[in-house]
Design a binder for these strands. Structure first.
Lengths: 174, 174
DNA sequence: TTTTCAATGCGAAGCATTTCCATTATCGGC
DNA sequence: GCCGATAATGGAAATGCTTCGCATTGAAAA
């Protein structure tokens, strides 16, 4: 039991706990999907994960990946995010700080940020209207530094609000 | 030209202007769809609008409603909103203050709010990361006052994050 | 009025996601 | 270690929202 794997181990334990508590069963597919999910960088779709899983076990189907991602979300290991392209992306949730997203409308770059001030004001706003806040989603769109400097030919794939396939992840605390 | 209709008139003018500027054509269908859209309360899907239009002109098809809503959005008369149920809702945009949404996870009630402080901090955050902000989406989920008081049987239709059909609109400035 | 080409509306296609269901596999109990 | 109940799987089919293709219609410039 090396020190390095401890992070993974914990998440696997969380998963097992959730599985047992819900009266579900541990399967090789779920183990594999979790393992591969844990190794990824953030913001991948069920489809993305499906292809990664395929490489190791071509017998796994789309359906199982969808179902397992939902399971991981329930277990608190994954979080669903949408960027407006009608796809559901997933990112790590357990042991990861909560954050919001800043998205470049030109190149699709995604910057993750966290602002305690904004968080506090959101909670205050919810309470002001009598709500007990549970969660939220804040997305800011704009043009990133790089894209401001290049000539204004917007990418064809972005023309009608479409999002690019590749996302640059940049985690910045604040 | 009565005073009362001036608001509508303006929006129709905006639409015509947009139509002409883009080299498009004015049609009876577009006029009808705009007219009905203007009369609605907020947060309706293309499908919702389609049925309203059907009542007055059964010959109009889904496609035209979709296309026209997109047109209205480009013209700045409508705004697309998503509440997480994979449907695109539209709300009035022209002559309506920008606002964000507070959504009850129990009954689906939607409260619209505006917080200049949060807006300012969002812009500041974008700039901090070198972005020129264009637009944003902020949604807060929680349990509304009414639902906090009732017993905790969550509505079946909301069980897996589904959204209700009927939305209560409440505009509150702040 | 003629001409041009945008707009329409139907059905079909796309796309992400879910459902169906027969088959397979887990896991508690014997 | 073997059974048996039943959860899980995966492939195909279905779903729900949205868009496309295309033949036809119609707006508006000439």
């Amino acid at each position: 039991m090396t020190k390095i794997k401890e992070g993974y181990k914990n998440e696997k334990e969380i998963f097992l706990e959730h599985i047992q508590k819900a009266g579900l069963r541990r399967t090789a597919q779920r183990d594999l999907i979790l393992e591969i999910f844990l190794k990824t960088e953030e913001h991948l779709t069920s489809e993305d994960l499906y292809w990664l899983v395929q490489k190791q076990d071509p017998s796994v189907g789309h359906t199982t990946v969808y179902r397992t991602l939902k399971l991981l979300t329930e277990a608190g290991l994954a979080r669903e995010v949408r960027f407006g392209d009608n796809k559901t992306y997933y990112e790590h949730h357990y042991n990861h700080e909560h954050h919001d997203h800043l998205i470049c409308t030109e190149c699709g770059k995604v910057v993750e940020f966290f602002s305690p001030e904004i968080e506090a004001m959101q909670d205050a706003t919810a309470h002001k209207f009598g709500f007990v806040p549970t969660h939220h989603s804040l997305r800011l769109w704009g043009i990133c530094e790089d894209c401001q400097q290049t000539t204004h030919e917007s990418h064809p794939s972005m023309a009608s609000g479409a999002q690019p396939r590749v996302r640059v992840k940049t985690v910045v605390g604040s």
